[in-house]
Structure formats: structure tokens, C-alpha cells
Design a protein around this nucleic acid. Structure first.
Lengths: 217, 217
DNA sequence: TGTACATCAGTGAACGCGCGTTCACTGATGTAC
DNA sequence: TGTACATCAGTGAACGCGCGTTCACTGATGTAC
């Protein structure tokens, strides 16, 4: 990775002009490559071409930068899922497309995905360094709520037999997360005759939705 | 955690007597609490009550200790899965029980589970520090092979329509891994009316096996 | 258009810390005689 | 049973390193007059 800056003009100078955005971008890249634990402020500053101290003009510290990345990532993820859901087709098709959007997001934005879902390294007491309430994931409830809402709005009549949409939402989310993380770790076997990530998710969603209605009906 | 030692006698002395095992045990505990990235040799040595240098009598270094933990974890996981599979019942029951054993292992042995599956922090070049070939997971192929073999031996007649058992194996593995990691991160919503991990996996396995045979037959 | 000045985004040196690892060493153990 | 000695599992001090963070500071920017 070469030093890099963005913005209307590329002249180097005492003032960067777009440092906050550049740091977030650098963090996103490093997290994608090395995970949250492997990300350092020093590297991010070096990549952007700025002294490490400059970071503190824009963020309270390392943790604040990570939170910002996670928040932006979640916003982007939510937007993509909503967009996928909005398209044409049967409810099942639209829901399936949302699953694909989830996998695609995890693949295209591994930095965001890790920032959102990778466990923060916690202190021995389970609290984040620097105090604060015990480890409360910033957006997990929202992620789940998003999925449940999507299911509810996509299948407004519910499922036959009154199967709780939250059940299916959890099922699909767990499968998606499993596929995404195994794939990201390079641990999902691939090869001729083996299904792709998207094959796996599509078949899984189908089986679960059908299974729920079949058993209940 | 208090300093801790095991072995036939508990007298403290110049020689620990069981240091290698004690260090592996300490590593397992710390990894469970803080993840692979949060594990340090210094902490492990302190917990065991030994100087950090003593570690090098038994391991080449930090990475070697982690590999040993992962290897033991995988052996234990394989043993549990095999044991679950060996019991009585229909093929589907036995296969389902194997899935439950997987989840139970991830819950009871989070240190082992993380050591096996958590991404090692890689250097910028994608190679483990200290050289060696690019990141080759120690046991992922084995884990997958194990699952496929289990499916093949549990359903010796295959699935109707000739569905590839590897497909179902991947599906179930991804779901199990997703459930296990979301649960370990405390991100799986729980509450009245919401399914447990085991509910989720059981229903998922059922849906997938049935779905495969139904669509194919 | 030119100048004084407030603002503030950067610098760069330094800090204390904990890490993995090394080194020469020392003390306990167990075996040969 | 007693003693000399080889073996080797430990010590503890030190190393170089990179980290996150702080501090007084400086240089660029843009606004008021």
C-alpha cells in the first residue's frame, strides 16, 4: 500500500484537508488485511502520510476510530440490504437477494464486516479498555432487528402455522455469518463440484423457509 | 485466575514438574477469555508461576504453543464428534447429535475452538511471522473431511436424487460455525420465545436434510 | 489589495508500557560408581 | 549408603521493538479591517 490521500486537490502540505476520512479509509483497509487486533494507529497514520499525533485532532483515540469505522460499515450494510430488498420479485426472491447482498458485503468490505462483528479484544474484566459499560456490541441488536423487519415486511402474511419470523431470521443470519466468516478465513473448501458461497446460502434459505412452512402446515 | 499448578505433588520448587501441560492449559484459558490476539506468553507464564523464559524449554515460541493448543483442541473435537456419532438411533438422529456435540464443544471449550478456527493474525504479506508457507490452516481440511465422512457413514445409501453429501456437510458446518461464533460473541439474541443454539441447529439440520431429499426426490 | 491576527490542523520528540525473545547462570534431579 | 557428576528445567536481567498517547510547538488558512 502506497501513501495515499484523497480530496479535491492532491498537493501535499502542512494541512491534509481530508484527514478524518483518510484515516477511516486506512483503518478499513488495515482491518480487512489483519483484523481488528492487527490494526494499529501508527500504521494508519503512516499510510496516510501524517504523524500519529495528528489522529487525535479527529478522534478521541484508537477505540473511537474503530467505533466510527464500525458505525459507517453498519450504515453501508443496512443500505445495501434495504436496496436488495426493495427490488422486484416474489417475497422469497427478494429475501434471497438480501442474503446475497449480505454475503457480497462481507466479501467486498471485509474491513467493515470485521469492524462490525469481530469481537473487540476485551480486558480481563470483560470491559473495553478505558472503562465504560461491559462489552455491549454496538449494532448487533440493530442487525438482528433489521433482518426481522425485513422478514416481516417481505412476508407480511407471516408463515403458515405461525412460525415466528424471528426464528427464521436467526437461522438465516447464523448461516450467512458462518458462510461469510469461513469464506473470509479461506476455510470454505472450494473446487469443481463444490457449491459457492451463494449456492450455499440460497439453498439454505430455501430449505429453511420451506422447512418452516412444511413442518408447520 | 489464581496461580495454578497441577501434577502429582503441589510443592513449589525450582522444578515445576508439569510445566508444558500447565502452559497449554493456561493458554487455553486465556484464549478463551481474550481471543488469540489477546493471549500473551507473559500472562501465561505469570499464571503458572514461572518466568517467561521457562517457556522456551518446552516450545519454540509463541506460535508453537498456539499450534499445540490448536492441535489438542482438534483432537478433542474429533473425538467428541466421533463419540456422538457412534451412539444409537436413526442416521438423522445421530447426525443431529453430532451437531449438538459441535456446539457444545464450542461452548465448553471456547479456547480450543478459537485456537482451531480463529484467524491467526498474519503479517502484511499474509505469511505467519517467522516465515513458512502462506497461511495454511492446520486442520480445516481435516475438519471438513471429518464431517463429510460422518455424513457418508451415517447415510451410507446417500440422499435421494444423489445430492452430494459434501454439499450438506458444508451447509451444516457453516450453520454450526455461525451459531457458535455469534453465541460466543454474545451476539445471538436470547429471551423468552427465542430459540436456543441447539434449537436453531436442530431445526436447521432437519430443514437441510429434508430440503435436499425433497427437492431432489 | 494589503496587513494583523485568531484559529486550528498539523509536527516531532518524548513518555511509559508490555511484548517476545536471548543469554549466561544456577539449582534440583537422578545415575554411576 | 554416600559421593561425584552429567543433565537439564528453571531464573532473572536485559534487549530491541512497536504500541497508544501527551505535550509544547509551528505553520497554514481565512477573516476583519
Amino acid at each position: 500500500m502506497r501513501p495515499w490521500r484523497s480530496g479535491p486537490s492532491d498537493r501535499r502540505g502542512y494541512h491534509h484537508g481530508n484527514l478524518k476520512e483518510a484515516l477511516i479509509e486506512a483503518a478499513r483497509r488495515f482491518i480487512a488485511e489483519r483484523g481488528i487486533g492487527g490494526f494499529t494507529l501508527v500504521d494508519a497514520a503512516r499510510l496516510v502520510g501524517v504523524s500519529p499525533a495528528a489522529l487525535y485532532r479527529h478522534f478521541r483515540g484508537r477505540e473511537a476510530l474503530l467505533e466510527e469505522v464500525a458505525e459507517r460499515g453498519f450504515t453501508e450494510l443496512a443500505a445495501r440490504l434495504a436496496r436488495a430488498l426493495r427490488g422486484p420479485g416474489t417475497p422469497l426472491e427478494r429475501f434471497t437477494r438480501m442474503g446475497e447482498a449480505y454475503l457480497t458485503f462481507a466479501e467486498e468490505e471485509p474491513g467493515y464486516y470485521a469492524a462490525i462483528f469481530e469481537a473487540r479484544p476485551a480486558g480481563p474484566d470483560g470491559c473495553p479498555p478505558g472503562g465504560g459499560p461491559p462489552q455491549q456490541a454496538p449494532s448487533d441488536r440493530d442487525a438482528f432487528g433489521l433482518l426481522v423487519e425485513a422478514l416481516r415486511s417481505t412476508f407480511p402474511d407471516g408463515f403458515s402455522g405461525g412460525v415466528d419470523p424471528r426464528f427464521i431470521a436467526l437461522e438465516v443470519w447464523a448461516l450467512s455469518h458462518g458462510i461469510a466468516t469461513l469464506a473470509a478465513a479461506g476455510r470454505l473448501p472450494t473446487g469443481p463440484g463444490l457449491p459457492t458461497k451463494h449456492d450455499l446460502l440460497r439453498a439454505g434459505v430455501l430449505a429453511m423457509v420451506h422447512g418452516a412452512t412444511a413442518r408447520a402446515g
